[in-house]
Write a protein that binds this DNA or RNA. Structure first.
Lengths: 78, 78
DNA sequence: AGGAATTCGGGTAATTTGGGTT
DNA sequence: ACTGTCCAAATTACCCGAATTC
């Protein structure tokens, strides 16, 4: 198996992203992504050391919602 | 044989994970997992050669505890 | 017995965290 | 209410050579 060192082992596992990667996708500061997690707008997984990891699927979903105007019931607008 | 099938199905024994395996679950470097073991944040078993192995149940429990989902069952939110 | 991949160790950059501020 | 920046401290990532595992 030719793998660098990282994310190419668990095939059926959930892929996780670092704050910096998520920030790059949204074109925002990593700090802003952290605020989203703190505000409960996005799920996060903390490492035992306290750093956050984000689910790629969830991030992509959120990113898709921002790509086009979404105003559907259940979207929590309060 | 692939990297994910290093160990065959033993009897009722505890499944052990390699540092790389645990690292993939948390999306960190295998070396980071080693530091967690050194810091006592996660239990580890050493092979006669000095390599570390981790209990799968403990790892999954730890992963679940550090996971904060926003609208999905299974995660504690308090 | 040889080979590929992983995991030791240490040491040094890069990223992340949290608070406070603009 | 939301985001970007500054700061210090903590955590994590990549570098190497050598040992271990399968």
């Amino acid at each position: 198996m030719t793998a660098t060192t990282q994310q190419s082992r668990q095939n059926g596992q959930e892929q996780l992203l670092t704050p910096g990667e998520v920030a790059a996708l949204f074109r925002v500061d990593p700090k802003t992504v952290t605020r989203w997690a703190t505000a409960g707008r996005i799920g996060s997984i903390r490492t035992p050391g306290g750093h956050r990891r984000f689910r790629e699927s969830e991030v992509r979903t959120l990113l898709a919602e921002l790509t086009s105007d979404i105003n559907q019931p259940g979207g929590q607008s309060f």
